[in-house]
């Protein structure tokens, strides 16, 4: 008999748990399901009976409008470019930083983690004012590089926070052995430590990508041409059009939200809980 089975659990509580979770699952998933269903319905069906669940005819007309008329592919390109650059730079900076904190400055590191929590406190709207002024000064307004720089402000603290937890699991013995063999600190980092924590780094990188892909406020304030707009801001501008076409908006929403959901499901086990765990350590 397994140890867990010693715990008696009443069927009543378990049934209630299933009912509660099923109810929550329906509520949690409904907007995603509704986006997908609405995106393949025709205009007539959307305007007809709004309570009909499944489309009678599946049409991809909305997606055609999104990509051919609205040129949404360009915005997807912008977002991929910005989010990918943000991820690469942020992970390089954070991996070095988190390793340095864990291995060389553990005492100072504990203080730094507190500082990272404090940066969490800065209202994004507080940073938005100086960012718009500073970016204007350096000619980085309406510039995708400027956006990547600003995105470091939330991605680096977050990534360091999560990565510190992963680096703490690397046994120092392995590193010392490599040092004795004559490798310098950077070589030890690259050749010994990085491969061990690679799965963690990939998870944090994907999380960083999702956050950059989803970001709205800075993109709204710093980018002012539709050519350079990210998906979030391009989506917002669809809503400003005179005639609201919900089918088209849902098709565009599907394009934006599906990558986020899929990537997030892949990494959730690794990221989940790291937030609180990393800060308590």
């Amino acid at each position: 008999m397994g140890k867990k089975k010693l715990l008696r659990r009443g069927w009543f509580g378990t049934t209630i748990s299933y009912i509660y979770l099923t109810l929550l699952a329906i509520i949690a998933a409904f907007p995603l399901v509704w986006i997908l269903l609405s995106s393949v319905k025709s205009k007539a069906e959307l305007a007809g009976d709004p309570t009909v669940f499944f489309p009678k005819h599946i049409t991809f007309e909305n997606f055609r409008i999104v990509f051919e008329q609205l040129n949404f592919g360009r915005n997807v390109g912008n977002s991929v470019l910005v989010a990918l650059s943000t991820t690469l730079v942020a992970i390089a900076i954070s991996a070095l930083g988190a390793y340095g904190i864990v291995r060389f400055f553990p005492k100072f590191g504990r203080k730094l983690t507190r500082v990272l929590i404090t940066t969490y406190m800065f209202p994004p709207i507080l940073l938005a004012v100086p960012y718009s002024i500073i970016m204007g000064k350096f000619g980085l307004m309406n510039n995708r590089i400027g956006l990547v720089i600003v995105y470091m402000s939330f991605s680096v603290p977050y990534a360091i926070w999560l990565l510190v937890g992963f680096f703490q699991t690397v046994p120092i013995g392995i590193e010392e052995a490599a040092r004795i063999d004559g490798a310098n600190k950077l070589q030890v980092f690259y050749q010994v430590v990085l491969p061990i924590v690679a799965p963690g780094i990939v998870a944090v990188a994907i999380y960083t990508f999702i956050n950059a892909w989803n970001e709205f406020l800075y993109s709204l304030i710093l980018i002012n041409s539709s050519e350079k707009a990210t998906v979030a801001v391009a989506l917002k501008s669809l809503e400003g059009q005179e005639v609201l076409d919900w089918g088209v908006m849902m098709a565009a929403s599907a394009v934006v939200v599906i990558p986020s959901v899929i990537f997030f499901m892949l990494i959730q086990k690794k990221i989940a809980g790291g937030l609180a765990a990393g800060a308590v350590k």
Binding site: A28, P31, I35, W213, F216, A232, S253, V256, V257, M265
Partner: peptide, 13 residues
């Protein structure tokens, strides 16, 4: 897996 879906949503969506 199903219950975390909202977490992944961009604010605009």
């Amino acid at each position: 897996t199903i219950l975390i879906i909202p977490w992944a949503f961009p604010s605009i969506v």
